[in-house]
């Protein structure tokens, strides 16, 4: 059984008065195996964020179903959705979404504290993660005192600390310079090698080339996919850009 199954997902946005509607997703089907590192690519407006929001249970699909570890999202009561999301999913956002009222340490603790974790376990759970992400010395600082790359690493730590089944990331490198992007991508590869499943939306071919599989979305469906297999990052990069060119031509 796959870790995550997405079946016939459809999302129609209605405008406020119902006259117009936008079909952001038409019929999306794919599944994710444990330990996979998946990148989702597509043109602007193709529905990537919509898809990710639905996977994150932040939004409901018009039709279709998502099953995480055999449990269908539609079975979960809306009152329990927040807990479900907190316990099973981790998020990394393009704009970091760290809270300026908290130190980095407290930002990372936030989901645990909200889950009612005992205060004495917090430090124990943070230490190994902080070490791996190289932010141990920054923990007492506030978000406005650190760089963008450091902020994003803190955000990753916040996503990892609940041991989620899947990490969902929307354009995680979007606000970073190239050096910080590289560091973050290496970090993602590293944690993926340790067994963490990752699903990432990205515009960047370079970011996607780190993934073990790339899905291309177009016109509301999964149009194409590439497995990395034994390819190096460079070969993967080449293959992705070829596919993108092809897609762009094919769309005309």
């Amino acid at each position: 059984m796959s870790l995550l199954e997405v079946n016939g997902l459809k999302k129609v946005y209605k405008t406020r008065f119902g006259h117009n509607s936008v079909e952001a997703l038409k019929d999306v089907n794919f599944s994710v195996e444990q330990g996979e590192y998946i990148a989702i690519m597509g043109e602007s407006g193709s529905g990537k964020t919509t898809l990710l929001n639905i996977l994150a249970a932040l939004d409901k699909p018009t039709e279709g179903n998502i099953i995480l570890e055999g449990k269908s999202f539609s079975q979960i009561k809306s009152s329990q959705m927040v807990e479900f999301r907190r316990d099973h999913l981790g998020f990394v956002f393009q704009e970091f979404n760290l809270l300026d009222t908290f130190s980095l340490e407290d930002n990372i603790y936030l989901p645990l504290v909200l889950a009612g974790e005992s205060p004495k376990n917090l430090k124990k759970r943070l230490d190994p993660i902080a070490k791996r992400l190289g932010i141990s010395s920054l923990l007492k600082k506030y978000p406005y005192e650190v760089s963008g790359g450091q902020k994003q690493r803190a955000a990753v730590a916040r996503a990892l600390i609940t041991n989620p089944e899947i990490i969902l990331a929307d354009e995680p490198t979007g606000a970073l310079d190239s050096k910080s992007s590289d560091e973050l991508l290496n970090l993602f590869s590293e944690i993926n090698q340790l067994g963490q499943t990752i699903l990432m939306v990205t515009h960047s071919t370079k970011a996607a080339s780190h993934a073990s599989r790339v899905l291309f979305i177009k016109d509301g469906v999964v149009f194409h996919q590439i497995y990395k297999g034994n390819m190096t990052n460079e070969q993967m990069y080449q293959k992705i850009s070829d596919t993108l060119t092809l897609l762009a031509q094919g769309g005309e």
């Binding site: 927040v82 807990e83 907190r86 998020f91 809270l99 300026d100 989901p111 909200l114």
Partner: peptide
């Protein structure tokens, strides 16, 4: 904005 973020990382309305 802060509560919006917190709701994303698992804060419930009762919280």
């Amino acid at each position: 904005a802060r509560f919006n973020i917190m709701q994303k990382v698992g804060m419930k309305k009762e919280d």
